[in-house]
Computed example of a mutant assay.
Amino acid sequence: MSFDDEPGRGGSGPGHGDDRFSTLGGTRQTRTRLPEPAGDSYGTGRRPPRTSRSLVMVVGVVVLLIAAIAFANRGGDDPGTSPDTTARPGGAGATAATGTKPVTGKQAGIPSGFPETEQGAQSAAVNYAVALGSDGMFSTTRRHEIVDAVYAPEVAAARQGDLDKVYSAKDFLARIGLNPDGTAPAGQTFISRSNPAGSKADKFNGTTATVSVWYSALFGLAGEGSKNPVSESWFTNTFQLKWTGEDWKVTDFTQKDGPAPVGRDQAAASAKDMTDAVEQYGGFTYAR
């Protein structure tokens, strides 16, 4: 066998790592192995302790632990001295707890008595979006209660007439599968529910505010044979609000579609499951 026939020669065999004459990756450098430090009674060598690295690791763990404790204790601060988390008008801000107690008053079952602040205007707008998107709007009596509670007194009467025309139109009610009086057919449950995802103050001037509320809406009839099954859609309502001297009230609002997320590939619930969910999971009062 010639020298070129050895492994790693001739260009077809393994690389230098298989050269039997190779020492360090084929560089033909000689590796000198120094004797181990004096061993213990069992003859095994001991490596010198790496005191500096161990000390750095211990200090790092202690610093992280102190930081974690300090962060956890922030939740016990006095709400009056906590930093202001209210976003500037038109800016993005997390819908987070502020330490302000939620309102306790109600008018026609709708939260009322919001503070004369930007946060109060946002809370009012979100609660009003829930009320105006509820199934109560399809009942004449309940609709009048909602409008009187939500709208400013000077515009409530005009809005009553406009909304009566929309919600009492027989062709509209028939198109969504309801009876002429706005009730659901026998054996079916009508669902109309708004689920706020967030809000922002577009403008705030002390006694007036413009607040946008982004929400998803469930709408349809749950039950066997429903021709209008419950579906989900997304909207943004922009409310014009006015401070009336005791609460925030709506003077006008507009609605637009979206922004809507991409739907997941989930199996639709059965009619019974959807009906049970609506009956078992009530709506909520928004407060922060």
Rank of each mutant, 00 (worst) to 15 (best):
A129G: 06
T32W: 09
Q29T: 14
G133K: 06
A38C: 08
V61L: 14
Q29R: 14
R53W: 11
R31Y: 11
Q122M: 14
D40Q: 06
V62L: 14
G109Y: 04
V63Y: 05
S112R: 01
D77K: 00
V59Y: 04
A129H: 04
L34K: 09
P89E: 11
S123L: 10
M137N: 02
F138A: 15
R28C: 11
R28E: 12
T85S: 07
T98P: 00
A70L: 14
L64V: 13
G93W: 06
G75D: 15
V58Q: 06
V62E: 06
T95L: 09
P49D: 12
K106A: 06
N73K: 11
V62Y: 02
A38H: 09
T81C: 02
G80K: 06
G109P: 03
S54P: 00
I110N: 01
G109L: 07
D84I: 09
A121T: 03
P37V: 13
T95W: 08
V103W: 01
E116R: 15
G133W: 11
A94N: 11
A97Y: 03
P49M: 12
G113Y: 01
R33M: 09
L34W: 09
A129C: 08
T51P: 01
G99F: 03
A38S: 09
D84W: 06
G133C: 12
A92I: 14
A108V: 01
Q122G: 12
A129E: 11
G43H: 04
G76R: 05
D77H: 00
V59W: 06
G113D: 02
P89S: 10
A72Y: 15
V103C: 00
P115A: 11
F138P: 00
G113I: 04
K101F: 05
T30G: 04
T117M: 02
Y128P: 01
G76I: 09
A121C: 04
R47N: 10
P49E: 12
P83L: 05
T104Y: 01
A125Q: 01
A67T: 07
P35Q: 09
G93P: 01
A124V: 02
F138N: 07
T85D: 12
R47S: 13
V103G: 00
P49G: 10
P83K: 00
A87V: 05
T98R: 00
V63L: 14
A131C: 02
S41P: 02
S54A: 15
E36M: 12
G105L: 12
R88L: 14
P83R: 00
A94P: 08
T81Y: 01
S82I: 04
G75E: 15
V58K: 10
A97L: 12
F114R: 03
L64Q: 03
P48W: 06
P35V: 09
I66Y: 06
A97V: 09
L64W: 05
S112C: 02
